[in-house]
Write a protein that binds this DNA or RNA. Structure first.
Lengths: 143, 143
DNA sequence: TAAATAAAAGATATTCCTCTCTTTTATTAT
DNA sequence: ATAATAAAAGAGAGGAATATCTTTTATTTA
């Protein structure tokens, strides 16, 4: 569904959100361990998200990644869009470039509902909203 | 959502279904033209589907691809499963290997609904069911 | 100011997906 | 039998996604 890059990105963002709630900045090594991802790879991804202002970072001792108030309230849809683009929200299910209402692929109308459902689900999920579930071991970010 | 291979496969299967309804076998070149795909690539894909019995083929003059009664009633879900596997129907949205009811990722429960919706949509769409829409130019398989 | 810390950036490897080209095999029609 | 047709099979090129390693830059603390 999402690229590996995007999966790591979402997991990392939720993880950073939790640490931010606890008042900590968190380093790349701990993030990689916390979400079970390749260290240098997630570093690259967060670099990119940092450039886009979706995650905050600080260099040097006591540095690391964290989320400001705006970032904490971003939706998972924002992250997906930032990493994978909006192909998954807009693209044709059968790969046609010109698929549209007036020139639909055979599954266009049905597929549209699925995509919309996906978008709404992600759009309603805020990065900072999973803290409680993670705290209570009702949700997990690795394995 | 689906791999390019899978997109071509679905389009080709629907195209072949339409030709079969018209009483024709159809050759690789015409399929490639009809669904706007690379010729040798869709050939490979159909070879694989042929091996699995999902499409029928005949060599030699007047040969080509066609669908028997069983194949004509296959669902798009069958094709997706044959080409991409069932990762999209079962896999975790965030890429966790052990995501489950008892050890869910943060979006497990919501994501499950989306996946189920996708599956049901594809499972209810039979390969042979798009003939009318294609005939009446209410649906398209290329561009 | 020097040393330590940690992210940013650059460079490179590896793997998989997509796509292409060539040769072989099977079937039909003459 | 021979020639023509068309799929099957084999081999591999190209590029994007994934992953790793090294060097540089920025910040803090002592």
């Amino acid at each position: 569904m999402f690229s590996k890059t995007c999966e790591y990105a979402i997991r990392a963002m939720i993880f950073i959100a939790q640490k931010t709630r606890e008042g900590d900045r968190i380093g790349i090594k701990d993030i990689a361990r916390g979400i079970d991802s390749p260290e240098h790879f997630i570093a690259k991804i967060l670099q990119e998200l940092s450039r886009k202002g979706i995650v905050q970072s600080a260099k040097g001792p006591n540095g690391g990644f964290y989320l400001d108030n705006v970032s904490m309230n971003r939706s998972l849809a924002d992250i997906v869009r930032a990493v994978d683009g909006d192909k998954i929200f807009r693209g044709c299910g059968l790969g046609l470039r010109q698929c549209s209402e007036s020139q639909p692929c055979p599954i266009h109308h049905e597929f549209k509902k699925i995509r919309l459902g996906l978008f709404e689900m992600l759009d309603n999920s805020k990065v900072g909203a999973f803290t409680d579930a993670l705290e209570g071991s009702l949700a997990f970010l690795k394995r």
